[in-house]
């Protein structure tokens, strides 16, 4: 692997959890701070960078590869908000082909095209789909690609489950040079217990939360306009939340190899939280706690 250009960050998390929104806002915040940023969407849905480039069409790497024998970076990239270079890996239609191999092929092609040497980015953000279901989806955290991975999660059990799976993958690849975990981004914080639940999960797994992103109307509205919060409502509190996240990623290089919970441990842990939430909702008082 040739010398690395910039910091390469992979962002994972369960489908629909807000990865692309979070990633795009971090990219926008980094760009706003004056950095050269590339955001690569690693998802066959190819909608990772939509809100960075006003919803315009962008041919994906794999679609272009399918139609042309020779692909140029200009064919598959668009410059979005703040100069962020947007790329979508693309992939097959649902139910056909192998999306995992697609990610592998797209990342290989971008390396062959000397994207990083030519563009000289300060940051490259890989927005990777859903759960790490097979080898292909672990490509960005394998040796020589991303240095650090962040996971976006809400307090929903299935999101925690997906985060735990990513921890397993990092645990497997990190010792042989793969990415380590930068931290957990707690997203859509709304329920009163959400923050402590995610905090507890990170404690159990030897990881930490790098930022709490509250559930926000501003985000939804900005998305409807095809923009990031940084672009649409730069003075909002929510924009500052993302700016803080970006600053953390920029200034803090700490990373860990997480200690994922195994199946029964995770279920046990979830059950204790189930009990706690039930007690909170039904007002159970333990041992004169209220006195």
């Amino acid at each position: 692997m040739s010398k690395k250009h910039g910091k390469h960050i992979a962002i994972y998390g369960k489908g629909g959890i807000g990865k692309s929104t979070t990633t795009s806002n971090i990219s926008a915040a980094l760009a706003e701070a004056g950095y050269r940023v590339i955001q690569i969407g690693c998802d066959p849905k190819s909608d990772s960078t939509t809100i960075l480039r006003g919803g315009n069409d962008l041919p994906t790497v794999l679609d272009t590869l399918r139609e042309k024998s020779k692909v140029k970076i200009e064919d598959v990239s668009a410059v979005g908000f703040g100069g962020v270079l947007c790329i979508e890996a693309g992939g097959p239609v649902p139910g056909v082909g192998c999306a995992g191999r697609g990610i592998n092929a797209a990342v290989e092609l971008l390396q062959e095209l000397r994207l990083f040497e030519e563009y000289k980015p300060d940051f490259v953000l890989y927005d990777v789909l859903g759960d790490v279901v097979c080898g292909g989806f672990a490509v960005p955290i394998r040796d020589g690609i991303a240095d650090r991975a962040f996971v976006v999660t809400s307090s929903d059990f299935m999101a925690i489950f997906a985060a735990n799976n990513l921890f397993k993958a990092i645990n497997k690849y990190a010792p042989s040079g793969g990415a380590r975990l930068g931290g957990v981004i707690a997203n859509s914080i709304q329920a009163p217990y959400a923050q402590s639940l995610i905090d507890d999960f990170t404690q159990q797994t030897g990881t930490s939360v790098v930022g709490y992103v509250p559930r926000s109307f501003t985000v939804s509205q900005s998305e409807l306009y095809g923009q990031t919060v940084i672009e649409a409502v730069p003075k909002s509190e929510q924009a500052d939340v993302y700016r803080n996240l970006a600053r953390f990623i920029d200034e803090n290089e700490d990373s860990v190899i997480p200690k994922p919970l195994n199946g029964p441990e995770l279920k046990r842990w979830a059950r204790t939280w189930g009990d706690r939430i039930f007690e909170v909702e039904s007002g159970v008082v333990h041992n004169m706690e209220s006195i």
Partner: peptide, 10 residues
């Protein structure tokens, strides 16, 4: 070839 793996070879 690769494109048939990625997009399906049917």
């Amino acid at each position: 070839s690769e494109k048939h793996v990625v997009f399906g070879g049917s």
